[in-house]
Design a protein around this nucleic acid. Structure first.
Lengths: 142, 142
DNA sequence: CAGTATCCAGAGGGATACTG
DNA sequence: CAGTATCCCTCTGGATACTG
């Protein structure tokens, strides 16, 4: 260990900017708030962050560099969201310069199964989808 | 059968409004266009439509009524997207009044597996997530 | 019935600059 | 290093009205 690690997963010192609260417009046609969870998974970065944490904890900038295309703003928001949902933990090492590790919780790890299944489906069927799109588009505007 | 069914899955008579093309901002940090597929699954309605079609084909208004909360605009866009990606077929019965059935393609059915796995995960862990959120929020603004 | 067209509000998300 | 704060713009998606 490097120093005293502060394990919290809750709050440390940062007052939250706003946390948009996701504004679920209440469409209880289905079961419960499945859409709530789907919104997490479906957003642009959450899944990639989870996948980046699958093997080992990572530091903020390590995540930022490995994801490529994400802004620090979005990485922060995504990590906050995942932390709030209990999917990742945030561990602060009070060193200089400061170091913060993010890691998957058991809940976060349990999400890997379904997500990876979806990822495999995506990879396997991506050619078919691309072909379907080209066919569809081609017949519309030749 | 009611009349002559026109099976196309491509185009019938409607010129597409625009089809936003999703604007994928090219972040090839991961594998291929997994995010493309994730965007389909992650949007607000696609998954629910797929689930509604899991057992049998459905007509436009049947879908609209059963999903509860979706606007005809969004239902149209969602169905167009799914059709374009080769996940659903659009079958027009030239009767009066017109009748249009939507059904899952084999590709669409193959998506059910991963999606339902995710749905199960969501239902099983929704209590944990809600609890985590309350804990997180509670410690921020008491 | 099954759409299409138009308008519009708000959330998502990128770029940049600043801070402890 | 690890954020926070602002600005701003695009895309999503809801409401409404009209059509074959």
């Amino acid at each position: 260990m490097t120093g005293a690690s502060v394990q919290e997963g809750k709050n440390s010192s940062h007052s939250q900017p706003d946390l948009p609260a996701q504004s679920l417009p209440a469409h209880p046609g289905e079961c419960g708030g499945i859409s709530e969870v789907l919104a997490r998974v479906g957003d642009k970065w959450s899944v990639l962050v989870v996948m980046m944490l699958r093997d080992e904890p990572r530091r903020f900038n390590a995540l930022k560099r490995s994801i490529d295309g994400i802004s620090q703003h979005m990485l922060t928001l995504t990590l906050r969201g995942l932390e709030r949902d209990g999917l990742v933990t945030r561990t602060v090492f009070p060193t200089t310069p400061p170091r913060v590790d993010y890691a998957l919780t058991p809940l976060g790890h349990s999400l890997r199964g379904p997500v990876e299944a979806l990822g495999r489906w995506a990879m396997e069927n991506q050619p078919a989808i691309r072909a379907a799109r080209q066919a569809y588009d081609g017949h519309l505007e030749p």
